[in-house]
Amino acid sequence: MKPTAQSISLWLTLVFGAVLLVAFVLFPGFFPPMAPGMTAREVAAFYDQHTTMIRLSMITFNFCGIMLMPFFMVIVHQMKRMATPSQVFAYCYLSAAVSGATLFAIADLFWLVAAFRPERDPQLTLLLNDLAWITFTAPVGMIIAQNLCLALAILLDVNPRPVFPRWVAYFSLLTAAAMAPAACAAIVRTGPLAWNGVVSFWLRVGAYGAFVVVMFFVLRPVIRRQEAEQAVAPSALAEGTPA
């Protein structure tokens, strides 16, 4: 089968998703996640001790994190194919996906700036570390909007053979609900809602990871079916039609 923009986007997700997983494991601040209760001196010592691994993993995140963008754009394109009254949710999804990805890129920069001069005044390293963790963890609103729009579009898709099965809508809502409590990570410093807590860290990261993996397998047959239909009626359903 000839590679298409959509199938390549899925393969990019597979490759860079695997790289991101490695970077996730390599970042010393994730295993276990750094505690918000660490003092400025402890945080500075942490950056000093793990400088190389922090830089290596965060440069990898920097380079590969946004490589998942084509994956989210495949979802936008599939939302535009749905028999919903209009394509408005696809535009909402696109807007939220761009803003959400920007936040990740900014958080990554804060970590890298903190690791750039580990000898900096510990108060400044602590500030950069706080900004990194809070920007990474708390602003869950964009992904919530994305998943809400995706779910609503799926539920309103009246096609007898809908683009996505309906369970994807409920899964999308469940993912949003699992990630929502992480907003509290900018407020509390201990317990399951702190940025290193079970809910704000493990549940949030786990839900996001599970969403990407599940959507990868949901999208594969969807794209294949679209390509098969396209082969039958090349002009009407061609992926290349301006959309």
Binding site: C92, L148, A180
Partner: peptide, 13 residues
Amino acid sequence: MVVIGGGSIANGL
């Protein structure tokens, strides 16, 4: 942090 995506939905409309 939770509701900011409402802005994105308004953009789309």
